[in-house]
Simulated scan of single mutants.
Amino acid sequence: MKKIKDLDLVALLEDITTSHYETGEQIILYQGQVGTVVMEYDDFVYEVEFSDSYGQTYAMETLKGNQLMLLHSDLVSVA
Rank of each mutant, 00 (worst) to 15 (best):
I27V: 04
Y30Q: 07
I28M: 07
I16Q: 01
D6N: 15
M60Y: 12
Q56E: 05
E22P: 01
S53Y: 14
V10F: 06
T36K: 12
D6C: 03
V34N: 07
L75Y: 15
S19P: 05
L12W: 05
S73V: 12
S77C: 12
Q33P: 06
L7G: 05
L75M: 13
G65Q: 08
E25I: 07
D8E: 04
D43N: 09
L9V: 06
I4Y: 06
V78Q: 12
G24T: 08
Q56W: 13
M60V: 15
I4Q: 02
S77F: 15
Y30W: 08
T36A: 09
T23H: 02
A59E: 02
A11Y: 14
I16E: 03
A59C: 11
S19V: 01
I27N: 02
H20R: 01
D42A: 10
E14S: 09
T36F: 10
E49C: 11
E49A: 02
S19A: 04
D52M: 12
Y54L: 14
L13Q: 01
F44H: 13
M1G: 15
E22D: 10
D42I: 06
T18G: 01
G65R: 12
Y41A: 06
S53N: 11
V78K: 09
F50A: 02
D15S: 04
Q67S: 15
Q31N: 07
K5V: 04
Y41I: 00
K3T: 09
G65F: 06
G55A: 06
T18E: 01
V34T: 09
L70P: 09
D15L: 00
L9N: 07
M69S: 15
L68N: 11
T17S: 01
M1I: 11
L63K: 06
K64N: 14
D8F: 10
Q31R: 14
Y54A: 11
M1K: 13
T36N: 06
V37Q: 00
S51P: 02
V45Q: 07
D42K: 12
H20Y: 02
I28C: 03
Y54I: 05
Y41P: 00
D15E: 02
V10L: 10
L12D: 06
V76Y: 10
G35S: 07
N66L: 09
K64E: 06
L7K: 05
G35V: 02
V34D: 05
M69W: 11
F44Q: 10
Y54P: 09
L63Q: 02
T62D: 03
E40V: 13
T23R: 00
L9Y: 10
S51F: 05
L75D: 12
L7F: 13
V76T: 15
Y30G: 07
H72Q: 10
V37R: 01
E22R: 05
E49P: 08
S53Q: 14
T36E: 09
D8L: 04
S53T: 14
I28F: 04
L68M: 11
Y54W: 13
E40D: 12
Y21G: 03
V76A: 13
V38Y: 03
V76R: 08
Y41S: 08
L68S: 09
Y46W: 06
A79Q: 11
S51K: 14
K3S: 13
V76I: 15
Q33A: 14
S19Y: 05
G24H: 02
E14R: 11
T23W: 00
S51T: 08
